[in-house]
Computed example of a mutant assay.
Amino acid sequence: MSDFAAPLVPRFLRTPDAAVHLGLSARTLEKHRCYGTGPTYRKLGGRIVYAIDDLNAWAELGRRHSTSDPGQGTVHPARPVRR
C-alpha cells in the first residue's frame, strides 16, 4: 500500500481561479456572467463556481485554425449582445 495519497484535483473553480484558467481578468469573467456570454456556472449558496470542463468547453468555442476559419461557435465579447 502506498504512503502517498493521490493529489486532489479541483472540479470547480471560483471566479478568480477560473479567470486565471482562461487567461482573463476576474472582472471580465464577471461581465460575461452578467451578459450571458460566458461559460456555464453554478451558484452554490452565495458562491459562484465554474466546472473546469465547462470552462474548457466555452474556450473551445473560440478555436480556429486560421483567420478564415469560421469555427464551430462564437465567443462573444464581454458586453451585451445585440440580436
Rank of each mutant, 00 (worst) to 15 (best):
residue 1 M to N: 10
residue 1 M to H: 13
residue 3 D to Y: 12
residue 3 D to V: 11
residue 3 D to I: 04
residue 4 F to Y: 12
residue 5 A to Y: 09
residue 6 A to K: 15
residue 7 P to N: 06
residue 8 L to G: 01
residue 8 L to Y: 09
residue 8 L to E: 12
residue 8 L to M: 03
residue 8 L to A: 12
residue 10 P to H: 00
residue 10 P to L: 06
residue 11 R to T: 11
residue 11 R to S: 14
residue 12 F to D: 01
residue 12 F to H: 14
residue 13 L to M: 11
residue 15 T to E: 07
residue 15 T to R: 12
residue 15 T to V: 15
residue 16 P to E: 03
residue 17 D to L: 11
residue 17 D to N: 08
residue 18 A to Q: 05
residue 19 A to K: 04
residue 20 V to D: 11
residue 20 V to L: 14
residue 20 V to Q: 13
residue 21 H to M: 11
residue 22 L to M: 15
residue 22 L to N: 07
residue 22 L to I: 10
residue 22 L to Y: 02
residue 23 G to S: 07
residue 24 L to F: 14
residue 24 L to S: 07
residue 25 S to W: 01
residue 25 S to A: 10
residue 25 S to Q: 08
residue 25 S to E: 08
residue 25 S to N: 05
residue 26 A to W: 01
residue 30 E to T: 08
residue 30 E to Y: 00
residue 30 E to C: 05
residue 32 H to V: 12
residue 32 H to C: 06
residue 32 H to N: 04
residue 33 R to Q: 10
residue 33 R to V: 08
residue 34 C to E: 12
residue 34 C to N: 05
residue 34 C to V: 13
residue 35 Y to T: 05
residue 35 Y to H: 15
residue 36 G to T: 03
residue 37 T to R: 13
residue 37 T to C: 10
residue 37 T to Y: 07
residue 38 G to P: 09
residue 38 G to W: 00
residue 38 G to T: 09
residue 39 P to E: 03
residue 40 T to I: 11
residue 41 Y to N: 10
residue 41 Y to S: 14
residue 42 R to D: 02
residue 43 K to Q: 12
residue 43 K to D: 01
residue 43 K to S: 05
residue 43 K to T: 12
residue 44 L to Y: 03
residue 44 L to R: 14
residue 45 G to E: 02
residue 45 G to V: 08
residue 45 G to S: 10
residue 46 G to F: 05
residue 47 R to W: 00
residue 47 R to Q: 13
residue 47 R to N: 07
residue 48 I to M: 03
residue 50 Y to M: 09
residue 50 Y to Q: 08
residue 50 Y to D: 08
residue 51 A to C: 09
residue 52 I to L: 12
residue 53 D to C: 08
residue 53 D to V: 07
residue 54 D to H: 03
residue 54 D to G: 08
residue 54 D to Q: 03
residue 55 L to F: 01
residue 55 L to E: 05
residue 55 L to G: 07
residue 56 N to T: 15
residue 57 A to L: 09
residue 57 A to I: 02
residue 58 W to Q: 06
residue 59 A to G: 02
residue 60 E to R: 03
residue 60 E to S: 10
residue 61 L to E: 14
residue 62 G to R: 10
residue 62 G to F: 04
residue 63 R to W: 06
residue 64 R to G: 06
residue 66 S to M: 02
residue 66 S to E: 00
residue 66 S to H: 02
residue 66 S to Y: 00
residue 67 T to A: 15
residue 67 T to R: 15
residue 67 T to M: 13
residue 68 S to H: 09
residue 69 D to Q: 04
residue 69 D to P: 12
residue 69 D to K: 07
residue 69 D to M: 11
residue 70 P to K: 00
residue 71 G to D: 01
residue 73 G to M: 03
residue 74 T to S: 04
residue 74 T to V: 15
residue 75 V to M: 08
residue 75 V to T: 10
residue 75 V to P: 01
residue 75 V to Y: 00
residue 76 H to R: 06
residue 76 H to C: 05
residue 76 H to L: 09
residue 76 H to M: 03
residue 76 H to N: 02
residue 77 P to Q: 04
residue 77 P to E: 06
residue 78 A to F: 03
residue 80 P to V: 09
residue 80 P to H: 00
residue 82 R to F: 05
residue 82 R to K: 11
